[in-house]
Design a protein around this nucleic acid. Sequence first.
DNA 1: TCTATATCACCC
DNA 2: AAACGGGTGATATAGA
Length: 590
Amino acid sequence: MDFSNFTDGIYAIDFEFRPSHGREGNLPDTVCLVVTEVTQAATYRYWWDELRLMSSPPFPIGAKALLVTWFGSAEMDCMQSLRWALPLNHLDLYAEFRCLTNQHHELQKNSLIDALNYYQLPTIGHGHKEEMRLLILNGGGNTPEERDAILDYCESDVVATVALFNRMRCILDLPRALHRGRYMKAVSRMQHIGTPIDLPLLELLRSQWTILQDQLIQEIDQEFNAFEGRTFKVDKWEQYLHKNDIAWPRLDSGKLDLKDETFDLMAKIYPAVERMRNLRRSLSETRVHDLYVGEDGRNRCLLSPFKSKTGRNQPSTTKFIFGLPSWFRALIRPQKGWGLAYVDWSQQEFGIAAALSGDEVMKEAYHSGDPYLAFAKQSGAVPPEATKQSHKAERDQFKACVLAVQYGMGEDSLALRINQPVAKARYLLRLHNQTYSVFWKWSDSAVNEAVLNGKLWAGFGWFMHTAGHVNERSLRNFPMQATGAEILRLACIYITEAGIRVCAPVHDALLIEAPLEDLDRQIEIAQALMAQASRDVLNGFELRSEADVIRYPERYLTDKGRPMWERVMEMLGRPDQIDLSQTDVTTCGD
DNA sequence: TCTATATCACCC
DNA sequence: AAACGGGTGATATAGA
């Protein structure tokens, strides 16, 4: 496959846009569009009054055309707002540049300007770019001068995109580049749909939140006097400790250790500390105003595809509902007549490790349906007839050990985590080594590859540069996490292209929505496609998935989030919002 | 007063 | 030197 197949032309485009009504979370309002055919360098400029009259894009999007962009999910967001169809073939230079320069020592950022500098191509300055960005954001473009300035600026980005394309085209792995471009299209579809939020309740929460905080502090802090207004003051806490003769752990720097963990530890000796711990925890979980929710009650924000070094999406944790503390998920609620499903792969990284390493014992553990208990059995620590109920304590420890290995945890940290002597942690890690020796050899080989070649590959063309010092634990984890990201991308492609409405990706999970009468069927299809994606990436090895189902008028409330949600609803005087929260679990896979 | 750093809390 | 992978973001404190 090469570029000569695109006989209808290769078009670079760039939109300028701003959120509708200036409200983040709303769909974008398109300001202008510039299109250039890359070989003929023919350029076309369109202002929004022309664009809104078009029912299809002024460039070809069929099988014989190619769309070239820098961060094309944004361009396709605009196309969807204009109700245009999306291109069949898409090449995104941002995705390609991220892939080629991942963890490259000379590169810190990944803007278009950074890419142009990297290839020593001319750029407009950061200053002008920022100036134009603000002009567009603040509703500029009403005078002929401003309009020309915005179009010129938009055109300069297209010119830069074309230059970058011509510089990069000979080094691209085209089939995989088109695959990544196809993912950018799926990203745009998800960004366009967004996650349904109970907007009236969110607004109530927002309007009352400071009052709730003040109430909480006033009630609890009179015992301690450690707060000044709404902030916890270290020196005031120190005074309290001094007055009460409490010796508090300190960091190496000499400052008080204020970790939640430390409060937990000290609460065991001084029960009053527990009350302050709870107060601090509640207050730390208060990001209600930054969440992007449009006037239609949908949480929409940039998903930041390919942003992490393993290729994961990395949306802002304050703007994205799934980045907030988990009790906020109870704000997620299907629209009337609709349902939602949060579908996630079961023990994804364990399954990936088994598949990639070819460790048959590990594969068997995955296929058993309960890898943690299987590990305990395979190592001989519990009898073959042991169950989750009969050997709960053992299972918890073996589970902690499996997770520890995936993150490269050492025996000291594991001991702390499971609240056991170091010797016990050492014993568990040794059992993992012995039971899954093939996995460990494979894990060693990743470290060797990285050190010897200066690169570490994760399949489908994603890799990171490893010249210079890289943490060994990072190298061992990279193939598993990056492959997980690859499986998610493929599943997003399959499921969005099957016409299922995907609200959001969450690393090893997807939130989908459907009318209630179609919900069960669509969950089934989504799970089948998630299994398909895992097989396609893992050479036939299938990952199971589970689904939490939320049917209107239920909200998405998990066991973890329930206590805080109930507390907040009580304080808001809305105890009626507590009980509408049942979730079922279905499973799929072998 | 502003910025950089350290530390912490949250997510998977 | 530390020893838990990948992140974002808030806040307190220290220093310019």
